Deep mutational scan, measured.
Amino acid sequence: RSLKHLCRLKIRKCMGRLHLRCPVFMSFLPLPNRLKAYVLY
């Protein structure tokens, strides 16, 4: 697996499933929209 994929998995694990599904939580993250979309992919 690529480093990019492993990073996405780690971020998702740290955030938890409930936060990933909450659009309000995701909108408050201080991340560029492209990065938010990548994490959610």
Rank of each mutant, 00 (worst) to 15 (best):
Leu3Ser: 00
Arg34Trp: 10
Pro23Cys: 14
Arg17Asn: 04
Lys36Gln: 04
Cys14Asp: 10
Lys4Leu: 13
Ile11Met: 11
Arg12Asp: 09
Val39Glu: 00
Lys4Met: 10
Leu18Thr: 02
Phe25Val: 11
Cys14Glu: 09
Leu18Ala: 02
Lys10Ala: 15
Cys14Lys: 07
Lys4Ser: 07
Leu35Glu: 00
Tyr38Ala: 04
Val24Trp: 13
Met15Trp: 12
His5Trp: 05
Val39Ala: 04
His19Asp: 05
Ile11Glu: 00
Phe25Lys: 12
Leu9Lys: 06
Gly16Thr: 12
Pro32Asn: 04
Leu3Cys: 02
Leu40Gln: 06
Arg12Val: 09
Arg34Ala: 05
Val39Leu: 08
Cys14Gly: 08
Gly16Cys: 05
Cys7Gly: 05
Leu3Ala: 00
Leu20Trp: 05
Leu9Pro: 00
Pro23Trp: 14
Arg1Gly: 09
Arg17His: 12
Asn33Ser: 12
Val24Gln: 14
Leu29Ile: 09
Ala37Met: 06
Arg21Lys: 09
Tyr38Gln: 03
Leu9Ile: 11
Leu35Lys: 00
Lys36Ser: 01
Ala37Arg: 10
Pro32Leu: 15
Arg34Ser: 06
Lys13Glu: 13
Leu35Ser: 01
Asn33Arg: 11
Lys10Glu: 06
Ser2Leu: 12
Ile11Ser: 01
Leu9Val: 06
Ala37Pro: 00
Arg8Lys: 12
Gly16Met: 04
Met15Tyr: 01
Leu29Gly: 04
Arg21Ala: 08
Val39Pro: 00
Lys36Thr: 03
Val39Ser: 01
His19Gly: 10
Val39Trp: 03
His5Thr: 07
Lys10Leu: 15
His19Tyr: 04
Leu20Cys: 05
Ile11Pro: 01
Lys13Tyr: 06
Phe25Thr: 05
His5Arg: 05
Leu40Tyr: 02
Arg17Ser: 13
His19Met: 06
Pro23Arg: 15
Arg21Phe: 08
Arg21Pro: 04
Met26Ser: 10
Arg17Gln: 12
Cys22Phe: 11
Lys4Pro: 06
Pro32Ile: 10
Lys10Val: 15
His19Trp: 09
Met15Asp: 00
Lys4Asp: 00
Leu40Gly: 04
Leu40Asn: 01
Tyr38Asp: 01
Ser27Gly: 08
Arg1Glu: 09
Cys22Thr: 07
Pro32Val: 14
Leu6Val: 06
Asn33Thr: 10
Leu29Thr: 03
Leu40Cys: 06
Lys36Pro: 01
Leu3Pro: 00
Leu18Asp: 02
Arg21Gly: 09
Pro32Ala: 11
Leu29Phe: 03
Arg17Leu: 13
Leu40Pro: 03
Leu35Ala: 03
Val24Gly: 14
Arg1Thr: 04
Arg1Met: 15
Val24Arg: 15
Arg21Met: 12
Cys22Leu: 14
His19Arg: 10
Leu40Glu: 10
Phe25Ser: 08
Pro23Val: 15
Leu35Asp: 00
Leu35Trp: 11
Leu31Asn: 09
Cys14Arg: 05
Pro23Tyr: 14
Ser2Pro: 02
Met15Cys: 04
Ser27Leu: 00
Pro30Gly: 14
Leu29Asp: 03
Pro30Lys: 15
Leu31His: 03
Val24Pro: 12
Met15Leu: 13
Leu6Glu: 13
Cys14Pro: 05
Lys10Asp: 04
Lys10Tyr: 13
Ala37Gln: 11
Arg12Gln: 07
Met15Ser: 02
Arg12Lys: 12
Phe28Met: 07
Met26Trp: 12
Lys4Glu: 02
Phe28Tyr: 10
Met15Thr: 03
Leu20Met: 08
Cys14Ala: 14
Val39Thr: 06
Arg1Ala: 03
Leu40Lys: 02
Met15Arg: 02
His19Glu: 05
Leu31Ile: 10
Gly16Ala: 14
Lys13Leu: 05
Cys7Glu: 04
Cys14Gln: 11
Leu6Met: 10
Pro23Phe: 11
Leu40Thr: 05
Met26Val: 08
Arg21Val: 10
Val39Ile: 10
